[in-house]
Simulated scan of single mutants.
Amino acid sequence: MTAQIRLVEVTDANRDAVIAVRVAPAQERFVASVEASFRHAREQPEGNPWYRAVYDGDEPVGFVMLSWNVTPRPGLLGPYYLWRLLIGAGHQGRGYGTAILDEVVALVRADGARELITSCVPGEGTPEPFYRRYGFVPTGEIDEEGETVLRLDLSSRP
Rank of each mutant, 00 (worst) to 15 (best):
R6L: 15
I142Y: 08
N14Q: 13
E145H: 13
I117V: 10
V31E: 07
P45V: 04
V34R: 00
D143V: 12
Y81D: 05
G97V: 07
L152P: 06
L152Y: 11
N69W: 04
V61D: 07
L152H: 08
Y96W: 06
L107I: 05
E115R: 07
S156E: 08
T98D: 07
G146H: 10
S37L: 00
W50K: 04
G75E: 10
A26G: 10
A53L: 02
G57V: 03
R22E: 15
A36L: 10
A89R: 11
V34D: 01
E145I: 06
R133Q: 09
L154Q: 11
L101F: 06
W83L: 03
E103Q: 14
F136G: 05
I5T: 14
A3P: 09
A89Q: 13
G95W: 09
R132A: 12
L86S: 02
G97W: 04
V23K: 01
E124V: 12
A36G: 06
W68R: 14
R114A: 14
G62W: 00
G93Y: 03
L82Y: 01
A99T: 05
V54E: 02
R84M: 12
Y131E: 10
V104S: 04
Q44V: 11
A89K: 12
D12V: 15
Y51W: 05
V18C: 09
S156R: 09
P122I: 08
P74C: 06
S67Y: 07
E124G: 04
G57C: 02
V108E: 02
R132Q: 15
S33Q: 09
L77G: 00
P74K: 10
E35P: 02
R132K: 14
R15E: 07
Q92S: 06
Y96F: 13
D12H: 15
A53E: 01
V8H: 11
F38G: 01
E144A: 14
L86M: 13
Y81C: 02
M1V: 15
L101W: 03
V54P: 00
D111A: 14
R157D: 05
G78A: 07
N48K: 13
E28D: 11
V70M: 11
D56M: 08
Y55W: 12
L152V: 11
E145M: 11
P72Y: 13
R39V: 14
L77A: 00
G97D: 05
A53T: 03
M1K: 15
R15C: 03
G112L: 01
V137P: 06
L101K: 02
G112H: 01
L76R: 08
P122G: 08
G75R: 08
S33D: 09
E128W: 01
R52I: 00
